[in-house]
């Protein structure tokens, strides 16, 4: 939210944090990032969707940690992950396991291209745009959309209702 404001007033450069998952590069708005920490132990949550790795203790706050690769269908590469990006998304604080945190991108809005349109059923709304960094393509993500945080509750409720009915 606040980042939109800044981009409106400043009009030009926006900052993104880029990171890699498997072989691919992604970026999220820097203002959504609270901090980056070294990978830590998590406690698994039974019955949670598979992309939830568990919960962790961030200086007294209990935070869910997710594995975006499972959600996005990227081949997991268990051994290489080394950091957790803590993001503040609306009312939710979430930790995201990544293989590596690369750098902060200063991106002029004109340099961000629309994502290539693909005919097909695959959901791509969580990709807000693409950016070419030298020879590499960086995908800009909307984490909240990627995790479908909004509709998740509804789905969970529906399944529970169906079960108990």
């Amino acid at each position: 939210m606040s980042n939109e404001k800044i981009s409106e007033t400043a009009g030009k450069a926006e900052r993104y944090l880029s990171f890699s998952l498997g072989e691919e590069s992604f970026a999220i708005p820097l203002l959504d990032v609270r901090e980056v920490i070294a990978i830590t132990e998590t406690t698994p949550i039974p019955f949670a969707p598979t992309h939830f790795l568990g919960i962790m203790n961030l200086r007294g706050q209990v935070i869910s940690v997710i594995d975006l690769r499972k959600k996005l269908g990227i081949k997991p590469n268990q051994s290489t992950e080394n950091a957790i990006i803590i993001c503040n998304l609306q009312a939710v604080t979430i930790g995201m396991v990544v293989d590596s945190v690369d750098n902060v991108l200063h991106v002029q809005s004109v340099d961000v291209s629309e994502k290539p349109e693909i005919d097909g059923s695959k959901k791509t709304e969580f990709i807000t745009g693409v950016y070419r960094q030298e020879k590499r393509l960086v995908l800009f993500l909307d984490i909240a959309k990627a995790l479908s945080l909004d509709d998740q509750k509804a789905i969970a409720k529906a399944t529970v209702d169906k079960k108990t009915a």
């Binding site: 209990v62 869910s64 939710v92």
Partner: peptide, 26 residues
């Protein structure tokens, strides 16, 4: 400690607590 909104709906857990070893437990 209340669980985050994203997992609060899961039945069977009323919250979490941080144990002596620093790890959270359900």
């Amino acid at each position: 400690k209340a669980l985050g909104k994203e997992i609060r709906h899961i039945k069977g857990f009323s919250g979490s607590a941080i144990l002596g070893n620093g790890r959270p437990a359900l």
